[in-house]
Simulated assay, not measured.
Amino acid sequence: MEEKDESEQRVWSWGAGTEGQLGTKILQDENFPQLLHQPSLSSVSSLACGGAHVIALTSAGKVLSWGRGNSGQLGHGEVVSNALYPKAVTSLDGYVITHVAAGWSHSAFVSDPGCVFTCGDGSFGQLGHGDQASHYSPVKVSCFVDQHVAQVACGMRHSLVLLKGRCCYADCAGNQVYGFGSGKRGQLGVNDRIKSVNVPRVVSGFEGVEIIEIAANGDHSAAVSVDGHVYTWGRGFKGFEDAHVPQCLNSTLNFTKVALGWNHALAMSGEEEVYMLDQKRQPKCRTIRLHFREVNLEKVPGLDEMKITDIATGAEHSVIVTGKMQSCSQAKHGEIKTWGWGEHGQLGLGDTCDRISPATVSLDYDLNEAASIRVFCGSGFTFAITMP
C-alpha cells in the first residue's frame, strides 16, 4: 500500500457505501473508518455529502465528485450509476469555487464572483432554473447573476441561498436568504403553503437580521444570525406542527453553527458546547416554545469539560469532534464521537448497532497531531478530514 505523506491531510470515510459514496473503490458498507488513498483528494478543503454522493472542494477552488449519479448530481455531463473514483467537474474549471452543497439527488456550487450553479434532479424546482428539468452538468442560476452569493444549502428536495452582505437593490433590504424547490412542509420559509416553486423566493422574517450561515436537510431548514440566534423552519420534528416561516430559538446561548438531520439537529455554541434539538426525547432540559411547536434544547451528555470543535449530522446520526483542555497549552483535538442510527456502519464503531450516547471512533492516527479536524455526514455515511 502506498505511503501517505506526513505533510498531507488525510480523508477517511465509513458507513453506507453500496453506491460508491465512500470513495473506497468498492461497493460495500464499511463499519470502520477507511483511509482513502486517492491522490486527487490530497488538497481537499471541504466536502458536501448528499443522499449517496459526495462533492469535494479543493484548496485551489476545484471540484470533484463521486458516488450515485443517476440524476446528474455529480455534474459530469452524464448519468452515472455508481462513480467509484473522485472525478473532476470539468465544466467548472474556468471558475474558482468557494462553496459546495449536496442534497438527496442534486448539487450546488458557489463561484468566487458569487454566482450559483446547480445540477441533478430538478423535478421539484430545486435547481432554481424556472422549470422541473434535471441537468447533468452545473447550470448557472440566472436569478443571482447580479448578486453576490455567499453560501448554498441543499435539502431532500429544496435549496437555500444566502447572499453576502446587503442586497444591491433598494427595495430588497433584508432579502438575504432565498428558497426554491419543494415547500410542502414549509421548508422554503416563504410564508405560503405551496407545494413547490422553481425560481428563488425570499425567505420571510429576516428583516433587520443578518444571517451568516444556512443549513438544510430532509424537509428542514435553519439559519444562524450574526448575533448567535438559531432559526429553524420546515417539517416539525417527530410529527409536530410544521413551521412555514423561520422561528427563532428563544435562548440566551450564543450559537455559531447548526447541523440538521431528518428528525433532529445539533447546534454548537460560542462556548464550544453542543446541544441537541429534537422532539423524540423528553429529558430534564429546558423546553422552548416556538409558536406551534416545542423544541427540546439539551446539552449532549458525557462531554463534561470537553470543547467541541466541529459538528455534523446525517439522516439519523450525529458526529462531533472534541478538544481536550490542557493547562499549559491551547486546546488540542481529542476524539471523533458518534451516536444515533448505525445500520450501515455510519457510526464507525465496528458494528451496525445504534447508540444513544456519544462513542469514540478509533482512527489509525493520533488526532492530537492534527491542526484541524472536520467531519461531514451523508444520509447514512460519514467523512472526516484530518490536517497535520
Results as ranks from 00 to 15, higher is better:
residue 1 M to L: 05
residue 6 E to S: 13
residue 9 Q to R: 15
residue 11 V to F: 05
residue 17 G to L: 03
residue 19 E to M: 07
residue 32 F to H: 15
residue 34 Q to Y: 11
residue 38 Q to K: 13
residue 38 Q to G: 06
residue 43 S to M: 05
residue 48 A to P: 09
residue 51 G to P: 08
residue 69 G to V: 00
residue 73 Q to T: 11
residue 84 L to G: 03
residue 89 V to Q: 07
residue 89 V to G: 03
residue 92 L to Y: 05
residue 96 V to S: 12
residue 98 T to S: 10
residue 102 A to H: 14
residue 108 A to Y: 10
residue 112 D to S: 11
residue 116 V to G: 08
residue 116 V to I: 15
residue 119 C to E: 01
residue 122 G to L: 06
residue 124 F to K: 11
residue 126 Q to W: 06
residue 129 H to V: 10
residue 132 Q to T: 15
residue 134 S to I: 09
residue 140 K to T: 13
residue 140 K to S: 10
residue 141 V to D: 10
residue 142 S to Q: 11
residue 143 C to I: 08
residue 144 F to W: 04
residue 144 F to E: 03
residue 148 H to P: 02
residue 152 V to M: 01
residue 154 C to M: 01
residue 156 M to S: 06
residue 164 K to D: 04
residue 169 Y to C: 06
residue 172 C to F: 06
residue 179 G to A: 08
residue 181 G to N: 07
residue 182 S to R: 08
residue 189 G to W: 03
residue 192 D to C: 12
residue 197 V to G: 01
residue 198 N to I: 00
residue 205 G to N: 02
residue 210 E to K: 01
residue 212 I to V: 07
residue 219 D to F: 11
residue 230 V to S: 11
residue 230 V to D: 10
residue 234 G to C: 02
residue 244 H to S: 08
residue 251 S to V: 10
residue 252 T to P: 01
residue 256 T to L: 02
residue 256 T to Q: 03
residue 261 G to A: 13
residue 262 W to M: 13
residue 264 H to Y: 14
residue 282 Q to V: 15
residue 283 P to I: 08
residue 291 H to S: 14
residue 306 M to G: 00
residue 307 K to E: 12
residue 307 K to Y: 07
residue 312 A to I: 06
residue 321 V to G: 10
residue 327 S to L: 15
residue 330 Q to G: 09
residue 332 K to C: 14
residue 343 E to F: 12
residue 355 R to V: 09
residue 361 V to L: 13
residue 367 L to E: 12
residue 368 N to Y: 14
residue 369 E to C: 07
residue 374 R to M: 10
residue 385 I to P: 00
residue 386 T to V: 05
residue 388 P to M: 07
